[in-house]
Design a protein around this nucleic acid. Structure first.
Length: 706
DNA sequence: ACGGATCATACA
DNA sequence: TTGTATGAT
């Protein structure tokens, strides 16, 4: 089986930028008097002074390490300054660090394709910039080379103590009969040095960098000389570097795989891998991993730098270690509400700033069960379509939890547990939002289309909000079938609980209790206070069940594609769910049309700005929450308003249309209806029907224009 | 009975 | 496709 191998003659210029003890730097910028002092950031924790998650280099000199407790750190370094991570809603709040990371990203993205690797790490593809520099202003002819560039570390160069290192570096950069690849790296040195100085100037943060011909080597190099330095890996020194490199130092080999290589194969350094054939490695570790291993032994790594400045998912979670484990459903619900609040807030920000919508909500939990034999069973994670609005997210997350818990403790014995709750405890909870896609780009021209189709008097701001809310009902790309766990189900009764909630009203299910008790706290991002009206209430089951049609249509195909186990599991699962809604359609497309506001061209302009400027995506200004509140409520308000205004008489009566809009399956839309629309809109609708095909990276396109 | 909170990706 | 496992920071 010929597996495509990456080109071995790789002349790209790749940089990996790594912020130095980033959280510490963020805190030191807030409190400049801490600069230069031994400092560490600790996560709120009463227990032993909290856990260190970032340690300044001054503190490291004293032997302070990450994963030490605050108290231990004080022992080895009594003068250390411990700064606590901000706390919001009873949990660590990392938003300050996220925003600081975005500041850096928007600077680094100026010179080439840029990939967010983590909150404080970035890959850059500087190939084009380097080639351009080589053609227009080659370093050989540069009389003055920046001091920062001269401080670079060049692997394989003769730096003995006696000689002037900077002269050697200057010489290396100036060499005119160098290999083309070395010349490109020389350009990389200059560009990265400049970028790092730019970052320092604009953010006050220092960073380290690796410059090489691929991501793997760049990443390796960025960690070799910290802090605030850069390291280059010329092609000629690759093999020498790898030959003596401990296998676990390589990214992806720090865990079980690396350990297996060491134990099972006797591979201690990356160079040791060279003795195995590709086939041998594939036989042991699979085609993909085997080939990957064979390549990295040779310093080959063809992975592209993805042009992605934004995270692909958002999560909010908390652990409840040992004695703090959650033992009642009400306690779980309380914390779920906190986590969902934060998640919802971040989703709103993402929507506002980046015009992106998340489509899947997932709940993760860890649990122990001391009582019975199967205490080691994993708590299953569950997901469902994501509906915007804090209260909806909270409700859905709680349902996911209940579904998971039911599986976890066993499907039958729930009631029979009797008066005392079963001995489970939740040690970790998290909710996350994924499948985040940009709002359909077609929106703009469709808005324009309705601009002359009808008249309306909504303000452009209202229209923009409305548009976004409606867009949340669009099906995610390639995601016509969802699991049904989000459907309303008979509540589980958990007897004998001493509830978190003091004034529990007898006779109300947990669901209702939650709403009664917690609703008033929920003022931040979107309202949970108002009881959903008939319309909104309908949308959730419809959105879910509407997918059922597609699911059944594709049943045969899926049967073939899924393994026996999976398909058996699925049918069992479906049975267990018992009665369910059927036959509705999801097509929010028509509602989308209807509520699009003609005067919303401002949105299109705003969107264009976002596409072009990376700054627009990444700047988390102070006012970023200003228009973020009450999205869900706004939706309801708009709907109510529309009932009275009956603007465009496109088809029939508004109410009737709305009802029918939701009963359409997206596959059942009469093609002739689409045919009557302008060509450009037809194209866009087609793109919606197959969103997977649509290039989803506005970031990339924006950068290419630079 | 924890390094904690987030992310990404490969696999089945 | 969803859910799990692994890995990194």
């Amino acid at each position: 089986m010929p597996v495509a191998k990456p080109e071995s003659c790789d002349s790209r210029v790749i940089a990996h930028i790594d912020m130095d003890c980033f959280y510490v730097q963020v805190e030191q910028r807030k409190q400049p008097q801490l600069r230069g002092l031994p400092t560490a950031v600790v996560q709120y924790n009463e227990w032993k002074g909290g856990a260190l998650i970032a340690v300044s280099y001054e503190a490291r000199k004293f032997g302070v390490k990450r994963s030490m407790r605050g108290e231990e750190a004080k022992e080895v370094c009594p003068q250390i300054h411990l700064v606590q991570v901000p706390v919001a809603r009873g949990k660590a709040d990392l938003n300050g660090y996220r925003n600081a990371g975005s500041e850096v990203m928007s600077i680094l993205a100026r010179r080439g394709r840029c990939e967010r690797a983590s909150i404080d790490e970035v890959y850059l593809d500087l190939t084009d910039a380097a080639e351009t520099m080589l053609a227009e202003a080659p370093p050989q002819h540069l009389e003055a080379i920046d001091e920062e560039a001269l401080k670079s570390h060049i692997l394989g160069l003769n730096n003995e103590d006696g000689s002037d290192v900077k002269e050697i570096v200057r010489n290396w950069i100036h060499r005119c009969h160098a290999d083309h690849r070395d010349k490109l790296l020389a350009c990389g040195i200059l560009i990265v040095a400049e970028l790092r100085m730019q970052v320092l100037k604009e953010t006050e943060f220092t960073c380290s960098a690796g410059i090489a011909h691929n991501k793997m080597l760049a990443k390796l190099a960025s960690g070799m000389n910290k802090p605030a330095q850069q390291t280059v890996v010329p092609f000629s020194s690759v093999q020498g570097l790898l030959n003596s490199l401990p296998i676990r130092k390589m990214k992806q080999l720090g865990g079980k795989l690396g350990m297996s290589l060491q134990i099972d194969m006797g591979v201690n350094t990356v160079g040791d891998l060279l003795q195995f054939s590709e086939e041998k490695l594939q036989e042991r570790y699979g085609l993909n991993t085997g080939t990957w291993l064979w390549n990295i032994a040779r310093g080959i790594n063809g992975e592209a730098v993805e042009g992605r400045l934004l995270p692909k998912s958002h999560g909010s979670g908390k652990t409840f270690p040992g004695p703090r484990a959650l033992k009642t459903v009400s306690a779980v619900q309380h914390w779920l509400n906190q986590l969902c609040e934060e998640l919802s807030e971040r989703l709103c920000s993402d929507l506002e700033q980046n015009k992106r919508i998340a489509h899947t909500l997932t709940l993760h939990a860890r649990a122990y069960k001391s009582s019975d034999s199967d205490s080691e069973k994993k708590f299953p994670s569950k997901s469902c379509p994501l509906r915007y609005g804090t209260a909806k997210i909270q409700e859905d997350a709680f349902n996911l939890f209940q579904a998971g818990l039911r599986e976890y403790i066993g499907l039958y014995g729930v009631k029979s547990q009797g008066s005392h709750y079963s001995r489970w405890g939740i040690t970790s909870l998290s909710v996350s939002a994924s499948k985040i896609v940009p709002i359909p780009s077609g929106t703009c021209s469709i808005v324009k289309y309705f601009h002359w189709q009808s008249s309306s008097h909504f303000s452009s701001i209202q229209s923009a909000e409305n548009l976004r809310m409606d867009a949340t009902h669009l099906s995610p790309p390639g995601n016509e079938s969802y699991s049904e766990v989000g459907l309303p189900e008979p509540k589980i009764h958990f007897p004998g609980e001493d509830s978190w909630i003091e004034d529990t009203t007898p006779g109300l299910g947990l669901q209702e209790q939650k709403i009664n008790v917690w609703k008033d706290e929920d003022l931040s991002c979107s309202p949970s206070k108002k009881k959903v009206d008939g319309f909104t209430e309908d949308t959730s089951p419809l959105l879910l069940s509407g997918t059922q049609g597609c699911l059944e249509q594709n049943q045969n195909k899926q049967q073939r594609e899924f393994s026996k186990d999976e398909s058996r599991f699925k049918s069992e699962y479906r049975e267990q769910k018992g009665t369910r809604l059927k036959n509705k359609g999801t097509s929010s497309i028509l509602k989308f049309f209807k509520s699009c506001n003609p005067s919303g061209t401002s949105l299109s302009q705003e969107h264009d700005r976002t596409v072009q400027g990376t700054d627009a995506q990444l700047t988390n200004g102070a006012g970023f929450q200003s228009s973020c509140h009450n999205l869900a409520e706004l939706n309801e308000v708009e709907v109510a308003k529309e009932n009275g205004t009956s603007s465009h008489s496109y088809i029939r009566d508004q109410d009737e249309w709305r009802r029918e809009a939701w009963s359409y399956n997206i596959n059942e839309i009469d093609p002739s209806v689409i045919d009557e629309l302008p060509m450009e809109i037809q194209d866009e609708i087609q793109a919606w029907l197959r969103p997977r095909k649509r290039p989803n990276n506005i970031v990339q396109r924006g950068i290419n224009h630079d």
